[in-house]
Simulated scan of single mutants.
Amino acid sequence: MKINRRAFVASLGGTAAVSLMTPDEKADALEHYMEDRLREANVLEGILREGKAQQYPTVAELEARNADLNRPYRGGAGALFVPRNDGDRKVNGQLRPLVPMPAKPTLLDFFKYRFSWTGHCLQSATRALKTGMREEVVLASLLHDVILSVMHPDHGWWGAQLLEPYVPEITTFAIRYHQTLRFYPDEEFGYVYPEGYLRVFGADYKPEPYLQRTYEFVRNHKWYEYPRLVTVNDLYAFDPNAKVSVEPFIDIIGRHFRQPKEGLGWDNSPSSHMWRTMIMPDRRL
C-alpha cells in the first residue's frame, strides 16, 4: 500500500508530535494508519459501487422541487425549528421535544439537550482521537456540525461564528473551512467526493464561485491540513450502529473550550445570541 507521508504525519499531530515518539511508537502508528486506510478503502469501494447503480437528480430537478411553496419547511432550516430527522433521531413529522436548559449552560448541556447530529460528531471526533490527531482538530471534529441545530446553509461559517469566542484559532479555522473542502476531493488525504452530495446537490452540481475562491484560499493556507482532516473524519462517521460517547472528550473540552462562568448565551460574547437562540427556540422576537 502506498502511504502519503504528509497525510500520515498530519494524522499524528504534525512533525512536532512525531519527533517525541519512540521508534516502536512510530512503527505501531504506521501499522494502525495502514489498517485504517485499507478499511476505509473497502468502505469507499462499497459506496462507489452502490452509487453507480443509483440515479441521481440533476441541479434543475432539485431547483424545481425547491420551487414548491407547499413544502412544510425550507431545506436549510435547523433541526430545532422544523420536524426533520437530524441524524440522531427520527421525528416522524413532529417537532423535537425540548427540556429547559440549566441556568448557566455548558457545552455538555448543549450536547445533551440541544445539539443535533451529535452521534455523527462523536463518531468523527472518535476517529480523530484514535488516529492521534492534535487536540484542536479532535475538538473541531467534535463540534463541526453542531450548528445544524440552527442552520444548514454555509454551516461551516455559521459554526465557526458560534464557537470562535471559545475555542483555539486552529479549531475555528478547521470548522469554518471544512464545509468548503467537502466539495473538493484530495487523494493525498484519502478524501473523495461524498456520494450523498450527488443526491443533495445534484449529479451535475458545480460549486459556486464563492466556494471555489474559498477553496483556493484554504488550499494554499499553512493550516490546510486541519479542515482537510475534519473532512476525512467526517466521511467515515455515519454508522447508525456506532456506540459513541462524549466522555472521552471531556478532558479535551476542559483544556481547549473556554466555558464562560455566566453560562453559554449569557456572557455577552459576539455569538451569545446564537446560543440563546438554541436555549429559547420558541421566542417570536
Rank of each mutant, 00 (worst) to 15 (best):
M1D: 06
A10Q: 05
G14E: 01
A17R: 14
T22F: 09
D24H: 11
D24A: 15
K26Y: 10
Y33C: 06
E35R: 10
E35Y: 11
D36F: 03
D36M: 11
R37Y: 07
A41P: 00
E45Q: 14
E50A: 10
A53D: 02
Q55E: 10
Q55W: 05
Q55G: 04
E61R: 13
R65S: 03
R65E: 14
N66P: 02
A67L: 14
L69Q: 08
L69M: 04
R71D: 12
P72L: 03
Y73A: 04
G76Q: 14
F81D: 10
V82N: 10
P83C: 08
R84K: 15
N85W: 12
D86T: 13
V91H: 09
Q94W: 06
L95K: 14
R96I: 11
M101K: 12
A103D: 12
D109I: 04
F110Q: 04
F110G: 00
R114V: 00
H120F: 11
S124C: 14
S124Q: 14
A128R: 03
A128G: 11
K130L: 07
R134P: 00
E135P: 03
E135Q: 14
E136L: 04
V137A: 02
L139Y: 05
L142I: 04
L143Y: 07
L143C: 03
V146M: 05
I147V: 07
S149N: 13
V150W: 12
M151C: 05
A160R: 09
A160E: 12
P165F: 05
Y166I: 05
Y166V: 03
V167Q: 09
V167I: 15
P168H: 11
E169N: 11
T171S: 15
T172H: 13
A174F: 09
R176S: 12
H178K: 13
H178P: 05
P185W: 11
F189V: 02
Y191A: 04
G196L: 06
L198S: 11
R199I: 01
F201M: 08
A203F: 01
Y205S: 02
E208H: 01
P209L: 05
L211A: 10
R219C: 09
Y224W: 06
L235A: 13
F238L: 07
A242K: 10
V244L: 09
V246N: 06
P248R: 15
D251V: 01
R258L: 08
R258Q: 12
P260A: 01
G263L: 01
G265T: 01
W266P: 00
W266V: 00
S271M: 03
R276P: 00
R276W: 02
R276L: 09
M280S: 12
M280W: 13
P281V: 01
D282Y: 06
R284P: 02
L285M: 07
